[in-house]
Amino acid sequence: MAAVVAVRAVSRLMESRNLRFFSTSSLPEAYPLAMKLTHWAVGGGVIGCFGTVQAAMYTTKDYQPIPGMGKGELMGLHKSFGLLVGAAVVPRVLLRLASTLPPELPGRALEHILAKAGHYALYAGMLFMPASGIAMGYYGGKGLPFFGYHIPGATPDKKNPKIAGNAFKAHKLVGQGFEIVTLGHFGAVGWHMLKGQAIWRRIIPGMS
């Protein structure tokens, strides 16, 4: 709560100086710039996670979907993208709570209900997946890679294979649902485009 209050205070200060990194105006037509930036940081990380783990699943000694990259390298990238999502989603959530958002796009009540449910599911996945991945790496003792760097895991006296194992099972199960929810999000974008609604200008930096 204190972080949200701080974000709101900075937002009001910047608005008073006509800076639009945050938005506190009533009913803006697009999301604030800070939300746009964190949206693409999180979204890019999520797509990176999905792409690398899917490629790793199909990688064998005789076949590499991404030439020159084995299963280990792909999973290292998968975990790195996961940490990126974990780092970006926290400010994303705080900004979501602190910012004035544009009104919902015109649509039927069912569309608005599905949109809200889909976004809540996305936020839940974006928070849970990095958390469970970190738990796996830390309590398993192997640590976590981050684009060439290595974050140490728990020392032998603090390792907890049970926590690591449960985190792995939950990570795998929730991940499958998260992929479906994300595909639904892409589908919703396509639906808005078919309806002729200006969906991209609401979320792409530089467009307002």
Rank of each mutant, 00 (worst) to 15 (best):
A87N: 05
S23T: 08
V4W: 00
L183A: 14
H112C: 07
A2L: 15
E29D: 10
C49W: 08
L173P: 00
I163K: 02
A154N: 10
G196A: 01
A154Y: 09
L84V: 10
G184S: 01
M75I: 09
Q176P: 00
P103R: 07
A2Q: 11
P130R: 02
A109S: 13
F22S: 03
H192I: 02
P145T: 05
Y123A: 05
G118S: 08
G133Y: 08
R20Q: 12
L114E: 15
M57K: 15
I163V: 14
S23G: 05
R12M: 08
T24F: 09
W191L: 06
G184F: 02
L183F: 15
N160R: 01
F168S: 14
R8N: 10
L74F: 08
V4Y: 06
K158W: 12
G165K: 06
H78R: 10
K172C: 01
G184N: 03
P152C: 10
G48L: 01
Y120R: 14
L95H: 09
S80P: 00
M1N: 13
R17S: 03
Y149C: 08
A98C: 04
A34N: 05
T24L: 00
W200H: 03
T60R: 10
G43Y: 01
V7M: 11
I163M: 09
S23Q: 10
A3I: 12
A34E: 12
V174M: 12
A164P: 03
M193Q: 13
R17H: 12
L173C: 00
I203S: 06
A121G: 03
L95T: 04
A170G: 09
G140T: 02
V42L: 02
L114N: 11
G190D: 07
A41K: 00
G70Y: 10
M1Q: 14
Y120Q: 14
L19D: 12
